[in-house]
Amino acid sequence: MNYIETKNEEKGKKIKLFYEDYGEGQPVILIHGWPLSHRMWEYQVEKIVDAGFRCISYDRRGFGDSDKPWEGYDYDTLASDLNDVITALGLSKVVVVGFSMGGGEVARFIGKYGTANIEKAALISAVPPFMLKTDDNPDGLENEVFEGFKNEIRKDRQGFLAGFGDKFYNFSKNSSKLSKDLKHHHWAIACSASPKATLDCIDSFGLTDFREDLKSFDVPTLVVHGDDDEIVPIDIAGKKSKELIKNSTFEVIEGGPHGLIVTHKDELNEILVRFLKS
């Protein structure tokens, strides 16, 4: 198994991040959503490699096959982990692709480290610019939404994740596009995550303001969002990211739920590969 060690430590011990690395060519880093792992990219990796790119997908700390420390789930630390992946693998001219929570890593990384090693970026169903409702972000979600997530997880994490999966894919509308077995597979991946990481990341993706980070983007950026996303609504996320990122292309997937990586994989893959080759 492939691991890199982060510079950040937990009680004097460095954190190991698991990654998979396939193909040759320009590197594309895929950053998964909450509460999944690199395995969520199953239907994208082959297309990216076959298109002539090197595809690297890694597990965020606390998820998948990476170490599961008690702390370190804020976006500054997560962006530092991404920087360690790029540095450890000696990458340049990278295309960073973030899904949902993973879009926050892309945003904070560029805001904090710049784009010296980044050639393009992509945000898919991503949480930036700012999910929380505040006086200067009146269209955001009430904090009670995120507190409700945490309360339900503390009560019955596995039950919450099953219901979340239904909403993730708008399963009642898209049951012809994915099986119950695939949905159950993703539920099992989510259940394997650290309970502490699952909780802490809710505050990270729900309460972190990425608006200034997005203003730092100076590379071509793809923003993809489904117009039927019930987890990260397009009006508070994709549309506003498009407005804040100077050199961006905005693609709306009609009828796409949050988990369009599966339900609308053919359309998404065509959009993503076209952007990579552009």
Rank of each mutant, 00 (worst) to 15 (best):
S92M: 10
N137H: 14
L132P: 05
P128A: 02
G90N: 14
I110Q: 14
T115D: 13
K93N: 15
E71M: 06
V97D: 06
D81K: 08
A121G: 07
I153H: 10
D74G: 13
L82R: 05
A121C: 11
V94K: 11
S57D: 09
G72H: 04
F99M: 14
K93I: 04
E152R: 07
T115P: 10
R54Y: 09
Y75W: 06
S92F: 12
E152V: 00
G72F: 05
R54G: 06
F130N: 04
R60Q: 13
A121W: 03
L91V: 05
P128S: 01
T77I: 12
L82V: 05
G62P: 10
P138A: 02
S125F: 10
A88M: 02
T115Q: 15
L78S: 11
L91G: 08
R61V: 09
V49I: 10
G98C: 08
D67N: 12
Y113C: 05
R157V: 08
A79S: 13
V97T: 10
N117W: 12
G90A: 12
P129W: 04
W70N: 13
G72K: 06
I153P: 11
G111D: 07
G111F: 07
P128Q: 00
K150W: 03
S125H: 13
R157W: 07
V94Q: 07
D136L: 04
S100F: 07
E105C: 08
E71A: 11
E71F: 11
I124N: 08
D136V: 10
E152D: 04
G90C: 11
E147D: 15
K120I: 06
I124T: 06
F146P: 07
Y75P: 04
A51C: 03
T134A: 01
M101E: 06
K47G: 14
L89H: 09
P138C: 01
A79M: 00
G52A: 00
Y73D: 04
C55H: 00
N83I: 05
A51Q: 03
R61P: 05
L141Y: 10
A79L: 01
V106F: 11
A107R: 03
D76V: 14
N117F: 14
Y58L: 02
V106T: 12
T77H: 12
I86L: 03
D76T: 14
R108H: 09
L91H: 06
Y58M: 03
R54Q: 09
F149Y: 15
V127W: 08
E71Y: 09
T87Q: 05
A122F: 02
K68Y: 09
K120M: 09
D156E: 13
K68S: 09
P128G: 01
S80Q: 14
D76L: 15
T77P: 13
K155Q: 02
I86T: 03
F99D: 08
V96T: 12
K93C: 06
D59I: 00
E142P: 01
K133Q: 14
A88S: 15
S57M: 13
N137S: 14
G90S: 12
V49S: 10
W70T: 14
A79R: 01
K120E: 11
F63W: 07
T87P: 03
I110W: 12
E147N: 10
T134Y: 00
D67T: 09
G98S: 11
L78V: 08
F109G: 00
D67R: 11
D76W: 11
G64Q: 09
